[in-house]
Design a protein around this nucleic acid. Structure first.
Lengths: 165, 165
DNA sequence: TTCGCTGCAAAGGATTTGCATTCTA
DNA sequence: TAGAATGCAAATCCTTTGCAGCGAA
């Protein structure tokens, strides 16, 4: 149980560390303890992180990690394609872990329980490009969030927690 | 207070001023010269504004307008439903003027000059509903922003907020 | 006259930058 | 050893807030 999960987790983390190290090597940058610790903190906390949470987690692993280094490393990870920076909250950036493949997806947020469903629709992607082209632009990135009601309340995982029934 | 701007515009603007004054009255707040000037500045500059642009325009009408008052009034206008606050740019808020019966639309933001193009595509809207339905949800609202490069740099000048090209 | 409103300046809060020191390659 | 990376603190930048005087009702 914990063994299998732990192994799978470690293997996954190792792959990310490798990818980041490769990125650093490619640019002639150095591997440091701090960078390793910060990448690990991101992996441990989850897919959506902010600088404050990362700093707290990183300091569990190495109490001397500075805030500036966290920000600098988050920038590096973003450049490496490991993170995507969002402005969900206007006064604080959220970084989303997206893996080395730069897999793209959009988010659907449930109005009832607040759960987030990730999806990617090729037709949609294509249509967005068409629209941009028609307006005289070359699409670079986009941000899309759908806010919706679950049509099958039974499957709405966290519904009972806040919204009652 | 006498309006030195074009009279044709005044008629259209008058309605908005009335709506804001009504909002203020409803809450027992006061009409002031500054508030009128700031609302007028928003109307003059266009649908997408930021605090800096508003302050500059407002000071053309009354050089004594303070930055804090601009921010306070933008908050009031947002609460009154006249503005929508966006975070297109992560370090600076953009306020969008939304009149009484403004239709739904999405935004395309130019990576070069930051100008904003509004658009609405029925196929896109329909596709979004299909996606939500397929995931087991009933779409309520959405937020979508396209970030793109202008394919015609000559027309892409440095403008903070415009209706587009 | 009553307080809400205003301008100014200081305060805030997240993020970046300067710099002397530490440490990787 | 060279110079990249770090931690700390100061600096930024947008936005908010405290305060004493001003002004709408």
């Amino acid at each position: 149980m914990a063994n299998t999960a732990g192994q799978a987790k470690s293997a996954k983390h190792a792959k990310i560390h490798e990818a980041f190290d490769a990125y650093l090597a490619r640019l002639g940058l150095r591997q440091t303890k701090q960078r390793r610790v910060i990448v690990e903190a991101v992996l441990q906390i989850g897919p959506h992180v902010d600088a404050e949470a990362i700093t707290a987690q990183a300091r569990q692993l190495d109490s001397s990690v500075g805030l500036a280094t966290v920000y600098r490393t988050l920038q590096l990870m973003t450049a490496a394609g490991l993170l995507l920076e969002h402005s969900f909250n206007k006064d604080r950036s959220t970084f989303e872990f997206v893996g080395p493949d730069r897999e793209h997806h959009d988010h659907l947020i449930c109005n009832q329980c607040g759960c987030i469903v990730e999806f990617c629709d090729d037709s949609l992607e294509e249509l967005q490009e068409q629209i941009a082209r028609k307006l005289g632009f070359r699409l670079k990135t986009h941000r899309m969030e759908l806010f919706a009601d679950c049509t099958n309340p039974e499957t709405c995982t966290r519904r009972a927690s806040t919204k009652g029934h």
